[in-house]
Nucleic acid binder design. Structure first.
Lengths: 182, 182
DNA sequence: GAAGTTAGTGATTGAGTACTAACTTCATCG
DNA sequence: CGATGAAGTTAGTACTCAATCACTAACTTC
């Protein structure tokens, strides 16, 4: 297998491992095992552990962006909003690692920023802005609608992360106001 | 100093340390140093590191709840909403560790749930539900308004964690729709 | 002042960690 | 055939960390 292909599978493995353990608690050993390769070899493909985490977060953001843009393609306004909401819900159910990785990313960036490292946050902010702009366009360039959409998305992230099961009363407000499922 | 008082200061120190490093990357040594006590003594006050983290998250949630209930006291409806929004913004600015700890908590619970440990999530969900109910009451028992309020709150958390500076265009939607500052 | 308790420490251990250096295997090509 | 270079491994280093243990100093009770 070529180094480039390996790097690909390392990124995929890193996403699932980092998603479950966060940055610090995930060992490069665990990633290597999932890839099916020796642990030191990872350091041929990436300069260090941080680079693996960064690659994983970037990939994760890009994948999420793609889910939105694919869902909204050819639609606009209310229809686009509904399609994106449904697509995001499907993403969370079908590929929970993406959501977990997102939460780990937020925590990691927050910690990095708090301790003076603004480099990591920079790339994440750029990815987020891209996602914001894409959703913004799909929703007809309505700023407040974009903000509201993302706000509900973040609440979904939080409640899902906390493990509130579907049907729990804490979800009831979604049917009345945002209707992301319907 | 009595053990109970010590336990108090350990919790406070744990909040700031865990907030900046997350669970795994924070050493008990760092907490002990901040308290001004030897590292082994922490294990007289708490059975293990997890218990310190749990105590920190519970305290953090309780403090946040108190911010809301204090702000909304004697008010209702639109006024209560505005007061709580302003109070939360002040909390984030004045005591950023509370927000960081919250994000670390979400990531940690998500990871725990994903790997089959539902005990940690249980206490966090309970604390969150309490907060939800308090806000719900303050907002006149309007479910969709409560959900919207919390949704905006979670977006604020995310954007702040990512380090988007005040005045960045990504915040513009807040003035038009939610007006949590104004 | 003996008996007992409470707050606290120093030394240590054993497991796990990121990362390095040096070696091997093997397909390809002149 | 023999050389080259890329893919991958084994062995190892230097370090960190949670948790335990045996101990002490100060206080309280009677």
């Amino acid at each position: 297998m070529s180094a480039e292909e390996r790097r690909e599978s390392v990124i995929r493995a890193a996403i699932t491992e980092f998603a479950r353990g966060g940055y610090a608690a995930t060992s490069t050993q665990a990633i290597a095992k999932r890839v099916g390769v020796s642990q030191p070899y990872l350091f041929r493909l990436f300069p260090n552990k941080q680079a693996m985490f960064l690659a994983a977060t970037e990939r994760c953001l890009a994948d999420t962006r793609k889910v939105f843009s694919d869902a909204a393609e050819g639609l606009e306004g209310e229809e686009a909003l509904h399609a994106m909401a449904v697509a995001y819900q499907r993403l969370i159910v079908d590929d929970p690692d993406k959501l977990l990785m997102q939460m780990q990313m937020y925590a990691a960036v927050a910690a990095a920023e708090a301790s003076g490292d603004h480099e990591f946050g920079e790339s994440t902010r750029a990815g987020w802005l891209q996602m914001w702009d894409e959703i913004h366009l799909a929703l007809g360039a309505d700023v407040s609608e974009t903000t509201t959409f993302l706000a509900y998305g973040m609440l979904v992230n939080t409640l899902t992360s906390l493990g509130f099961p579907a049907g729990h009363r804490i979800w009831s407000g979604f049917y009345e106001s945002a209707r992301p499922i319907a």
